Computed example of a mutant assay.
Amino acid sequence: MQNTINNQNQENLKGIFFMVLAVLILPFSDAIAKWLSSSYTIIQIAWLRFFIQAIILLILSFILKYKISAFEKKYIFVSFFISASIVFLFWGLKYLPLANNIALFFIEPLVLTLLSVIILKEKLQKNHIVAVIIGLIGTLIIIRPNWSAYGMASFFPIVSAIFYALYLISLRQVSTKSNNKSLQFFIGILSTSILSIIIIICEFLDIDSFGFNQIKLNDWWLILLLGIITTIVQLLVSKAFFYSKASSLASFQYLEIISASILGWLIFNHLPDSLTITGAGIVIFSGLYLIRHERRSIKK
C-alpha cells in the first residue's frame, strides 16, 4: 500500500515538472503571436499554429518510427476547446499587453479546479485551494483590472481561459501514456479543419478581420517557431495531465506570468512596475507552496 502511494506521489511530481516547464515556455509563443497580429488575422495565426503542429508530429512519426494510433471521436471535443481557446487568447494579445492578457487568462486555474471536482470527481484538498487563491491574489495585483482602459478586449482572455479549462479537463480524460503524440497530431488536424471552415466562411462573407492575408517571406521563420514552441508545450501539457490530477496542476499555471512579464518588457517595452513585481513574487510563492506540499506527501 505504501509503495503504491509513493508511486502515485512520484508520478504527481513528474506531472508538476512537465507542467512548470510548459508554462514557462508558453509565453514565448504568445509573444510571437502578439508580434504577428499586427500583420495577420487572429484566425490565420491560429490556423498556422495548428497546421504546423500537425506537420511536425507527422514528420516525427517517420523519424522516430512511432505509429500514430487510431482516431477517436472524443478528440473532436478536445480540438474544439483548444481551437476556441487559442483564437480568443490571440485575439486578446492583439489589443492587450502580454502580461495583462495572461493575467486575465488566469481565471482558468480556478475554473479548472472547480471542473475537476464537478466533472472528474477529484477530491479537492485544502492546499490546492490555498495555492490557487494565493496565485489569483498575486495575479490581480499584477493586472489591477481596468475595464475602461481595455474595454471588450478584456473579455477575450477570460473566454479563452474557460475554453482552456474545458480542454484540460477533456485532455485528462483522453490522455494515455502511449497516445500523447498521436493525440496532439489529431488535435492539429482537427483544429486546422475547424479554423479552415471559419476562414472560408469569412472569406465568402468578405470579413477581412477573420480572413487570410498573404504571408511575407521574412515572417515564415517566426511562424515556424510559433508552431514548434506550441507543439512542445502541448506535448508537455499532455504528459503533465497523464501523470497528475487537474486540481494538483491548476496553480502552477500562474508561473506563466513570470516569463510573460519579462518578454513583455524586452520585446514590447512594457516595463513591470513595483506592484507587478510584488504580484509576481506572490505567484511564485503559490507554486513553491504546492511543490513543498507535494514533496512532503512523498515522505509520508
Score class of each variant (00 low, 15 high):
residue 14 K to W: 02
residue 137 I to F: 15
residue 34 K to F: 00
residue 42 I to C: 06
residue 41 T to I: 00
residue 277 I to P: 09
residue 38 S to F: 10
residue 21 L to A: 13
residue 106 F to D: 03
residue 269 N to R: 08
residue 193 S to D: 02
residue 143 I to H: 09
residue 66 Y to T: 02
residue 48 L to M: 14
residue 167 Y to K: 10
residue 193 S to G: 12
residue 101 N to I: 08
residue 250 A to V: 01
residue 297 S to Y: 11
residue 117 V to Y: 15
residue 200 I to F: 07
residue 135 G to Y: 00
residue 194 I to Y: 04
residue 254 Y to V: 03
residue 139 T to R: 02
residue 147 W to G: 09
residue 289 Y to N: 11
residue 63 I to Y: 00
residue 20 V to R: 10
residue 149 A to P: 11
residue 267 I to P: 01
residue 216 K to R: 15
residue 16 I to K: 07
residue 188 G to W: 02
residue 260 A to L: 06
residue 41 T to A: 02
residue 163 F to N: 02
residue 208 D to N: 15
residue 183 L to E: 05
residue 192 T to V: 00
residue 1 M to P: 08
residue 49 R to L: 05
residue 219 D to H: 11
residue 184 Q to F: 03
residue 264 G to Q: 03
residue 131 A to Y: 06
residue 165 A to M: 09
residue 207 I to H: 05
residue 166 L to A: 12
residue 44 Q to N: 04
residue 108 E to M: 12
residue 153 A to R: 14
residue 92 G to R: 01
residue 177 K to S: 12
residue 296 R to H: 12
residue 222 L to N: 04
residue 14 K to Y: 06
residue 254 Y to R: 09
residue 188 G to Q: 07
residue 60 L to N: 03
residue 276 T to E: 11
residue 211 G to W: 01
residue 121 K to V: 03
residue 70 A to Y: 12
residue 131 A to R: 09
residue 140 L to K: 07
residue 43 I to H: 12
residue 20 V to Q: 13
residue 99 A to N: 05
residue 12 N to Y: 08
residue 169 I to Y: 00
residue 139 T to P: 00
residue 210 F to K: 03
residue 275 L to C: 07
residue 291 I to T: 13
residue 164 Y to T: 03
residue 267 I to D: 03
residue 166 L to D: 04
residue 48 L to P: 03
residue 64 L to H: 14
residue 260 A to K: 07
residue 264 G to D: 02
residue 163 F to H: 05
residue 76 I to H: 01
residue 28 F to A: 14
residue 12 N to C: 11
residue 155 F to R: 08
residue 85 S to P: 02
residue 58 L to I: 08
residue 20 V to P: 11
residue 224 L to Y: 06
residue 60 L to D: 01
residue 225 L to N: 04
residue 91 W to K: 12
residue 128 H to W: 13
residue 127 N to K: 15
residue 216 K to M: 13
residue 43 I to S: 13
residue 214 Q to G: 07
residue 212 F to Q: 04
residue 147 W to R: 02
residue 133 I to E: 02
residue 272 P to C: 06
residue 146 N to D: 15
residue 259 S to P: 13
residue 290 L to R: 08
residue 137 I to R: 07
residue 147 W to S: 01
residue 150 Y to A: 01
residue 266 L to I: 11
residue 122 E to N: 10
residue 212 F to Y: 13
residue 75 Y to Q: 01
residue 14 K to R: 12
residue 297 S to D: 13
residue 43 I to A: 10
residue 290 L to S: 04
residue 143 I to F: 15
residue 271 L to M: 14
residue 278 T to G: 04
residue 74 K to Y: 11
residue 183 L to Q: 02
residue 26 L to P: 09
residue 131 A to D: 05
residue 238 S to K: 03
residue 80 F to I: 14
residue 255 L to N: 07
residue 195 L to G: 03
residue 21 L to P: 04
residue 95 Y to H: 14
residue 122 E to F: 10
